[in-house]
Structures are given as structure tokens and as C-alpha cells.
Amino acid sequence: MIEIKNLSKTFTLHNQGGVVIPVMDAAELSVARGECVALTGASGAGKSTLMRMIYGNYLAAAGSIVVDGVDVVTAEPREILALRREVLGYVSQFLRVVPRVPTLDVVAEPLLAVGVETEVARDRARDLLARLNIPERLWSLSPTSFSGGEQQRVNIARGFAHTYPAMLLDEPTASLDAANRETVLSLIEEAKARGAAIVGIFHDEAARERVCDREIDVAVFTPGVAA
């Protein structure tokens, strides 16, 4: 589902003396349907960078990232947007929303974007918000005023609303209490069971043990560092 070949990445800081920082070289990764792969490595090793490149948020210097037949490295913006809408979900650590939009609509939006009927989408959103213990009285409010933990759970609900065939999860269980952590882990297990290919970053070792089938240490892709 996700095939990464010979991927490299450099950052060029034009306004800081033109420093060129190579951050990744010859990265390879293959994730099959129904499989969950954990990215590991110390902070700064490039876990999030790799994840952002798969999502098309960071530009690769060379190589290819094929997700469901689309090479994200060379695709046009509209092809990447279509891929994100239909195929590739991303649960980031931060919720970014338009002001004033009610929580229920924030969660239902990815479903509406793929043409699901409004009531069906809202039912799914209600179900997810309830599972993630967001009190019903908050559903009609914009999440911009919620606490950090609530925002994170809204973000997770939104990320799991559409049944994406491929998903990227950036620390989905960080700072959640035991009950909510359990819900998120079962959401991940359900996604795997229906055949989703998942790439995740988990600092929570027990969570990683439970849902991930294998681990990839991204440090081996860091230029100048012996594997």
C-alpha cells in the first residue's frame, strides 16, 4: 500500500547562510494492507520528517513514495489532495480548524468530502465523539476553546471518521488517560482489521507492542550516522 524507495531529504536554510542540512538518505519502507509499522529513533532522528514526506507536506529531494499507485514525490497538488481525501489519513498531534465550525462538523467533514450523506456522516461523528468521551454538550461548540486533551481527542475522531485504506499516526496516544488510550488502540486495531496500512510514531512502548507488527529505526536513514 505504501512503498518508499531510495528516499532522501535535505533542508536548505537560505536565510541562515545557505546551510544545507541532509536529514535523510536512502530511506526504504514498505507497508502492506492490514499492517502497522512503528517508526522509532531518538528525538530529531527524522520520524516526523518521514511521516510528513509520505503525506506530501514535506518535499523529498530524491526517491519515490508510492501510496496506492500515486507517487507523492512527483504528483500534482490536486492529485495529492485527492489522495488525502480518499486514501491517506493523517492524525497529527495538533488540531487545526476553521474558527466557528462546531465540533460535530469538524469530525464529519472528512466524510462529507468523500460524498457521504450528511446524516450518515454526523451519526458516525457522534459515535466517535461518544467513544472518545467528548461530552455531548460540547459537540455544537467550536473545538478552538477546548482543553488540549479534548482537542487531541477531537483530532483523533476526525482522523478516524473516514475509513482510509492508509493512515499516518503521529503519537495518537500521547497524554491520554487510560480509558481514552484504550479507545484509540481499539480504533487502530479496527482499522488494521479492515485492511488499513498504518505508519505510526508511538513513544508509548506498551501501545507500540500491542498494535505494531514491526519497527523501523529511522536512525539508519540518517546521513553520516552508522547504522
Partner: peptide, 21 residues
């Protein structure tokens, strides 16, 4: 030119980097 979040989060040109920062 490029995808909006890509240009804003990983700008390539010196001027865009200056603009974003």
C-alpha cells in the same frame, strides 16, 4: 508553487522561507 501546506511548512525558495519565518 506547490501544495499550500507544503509551501508553508517546507518552503524551498529563499524569499518564501523569509516570508514564512
Amino acid at each position: 508553487t506547490g501544495l499550500t501546506d507544503q509551501v508553508l511548512d517546507d518552503p524551498q525558495h529563499a524569499y518564501t522561507q523569509l516570508l514564512v519565518s
